[in-house]
Design a protein around this nucleic acid. Structure first.
Lengths: 143, 143
DNA sequence: GTGACTGCAAATAATTTGCATTACA
DNA sequence: TGTAATGCAAATTATTTGCAGTCAC
């Protein structure tokens, strides 16, 4: 399920955000991304369509897109953060450690686990963060 | 299961690391931590015992402790990273969103989930990252 | 026309590195 | 004593903010 460029532009507009050239360029890149990305990654790609785009605007736009749940924060290898397209209401990401391909999965049936941990610790669990790393089919060694 | 101060010092020593005053102070703080912490947190606490400790050394020591699996990286709310004591070979952390109390749990029975995701996507899953956030018993509102 | 949006440059913040000095084993 | 470890200051890197000019609606 890929993010829809038009739908996202419409949503921005409906929320009162102006559809500037810069925002369109960022949204274009983000909706077509099939890997996780950093703000700098977005800048590099979006500048092809919009050369005068600045990094500040990328940060500001990513912030908006996160609010709209169009993207979600993920972790990059260096420890700091990046973003990935998010279509599901509640989803997690699976990232290829070799080619960085990133896909979203909605199946997070952690109910039993959460209940056990909750019972054992007395904690009330509010949120969970789950991210999987592996090798996508293309990057797996041939047998 | 708490980290053992002496055991960790011994381990450092056996690995060829010198037991300097600074390292002892950092290890002391880390082994007694019951919340996740940043490098700056460690500096502040460890300086009580070792006033001339520098932040650089804290970073360097945390790096070593991570290699030794005595601590594990976790995520802080601001998006960047922190550390938490790690005793289990493979564990995850449960963090109180109010008081920051952090405990480790080893139960991560994600086998079924991992298998499903793997089957659906064709990915070979190598690692998983799981972190839970909730309210510890002390911080839960009274009924 | 006007307020939201922009880029730039400067400010923050977190972390890393170079280097001369110090201290553990 | 020799080498690893240290603190400091400077360098990097990531991100945020202030502000004057610009543009979508």
């Amino acid at each position: 399920m890929q993010l829809d460029l038009e739908a996202l532009n419409t949503q921005l507009s409906e929320q009162g955000y102006k559809l500037t050239r810069q925002r369109r360029a960022v949204v274009e890149v983000v909706t077509h991304a099939h890997t996780r990305f950093s703000a700098a990654d977005v800048l590099a790609k979006a500048q092809r369509a919009c050369p005068d785009l600045g990094l500040t605007t990328v940060y500001r736009t990513l912030e908006i897109l996160e609010e709209l749940s169009a993207i979600r924060r993920v972790h990059l290898d260096n420890g700091c953060e990046g973003f990935a397209p998010a279509s599901a209401e509640h989803g997690h990401h699976l990232i290829c450690s070799r080619c960085q391909e990133t896909i979203e999965f909605e199946d997070c049936n952690l109910t039993a686990l959460l209940r056990r941990v909750s019972e054992q610790t007395g904690f009330t669990i509010q949120q969970h963060w789950l991210e999987l790393v592996g090798l996508c089919p293309k990057c797996q060694p041939r047998k």
